[in-house]
């Protein structure tokens, strides 16, 4: 269970990565010289950066696993 929990930050990161591609975009509008789908991808990237900032604070000690560092 603990091992599964440790995968949470990985899963969230992969989710952001998969969301960054504009699969479901139909609109080809241009905003500030960027296509709308490009803006969308940049926003997802920004959200990934913001998530990382929180993840570093929240998950660090959990991931460092300092109590259990014996190798196999």
């Amino acid at each position: 269970m603990k091992e599964a929990k440790k995968l949470l930050p990985h899963i969230i990161t992969l989710l952001f990565i998969f969301l960054s591609a504009p699969y479901f975009f139909k609109c080809e509008k241009i905003i500030y010289g960027f296509p709308m789908w490009g803006i969308y991808s940049l926003i997802i990237s920004l959200l990934l950066s913001i998530y990382l900032s929180f993840a570093v604070i929240i998950f660090w000690d959990f991931l460092s696993d300092e109590k259990d560092d014996k190798s196999i």
Partner: peptide
Amino acid sequence: VTCMIASVAGIFLLAPR
């Protein structure tokens, strides 16, 4: 852009331990 952020995410996932 996402590639470079993803690479930082990878570094973060390795860094604590």
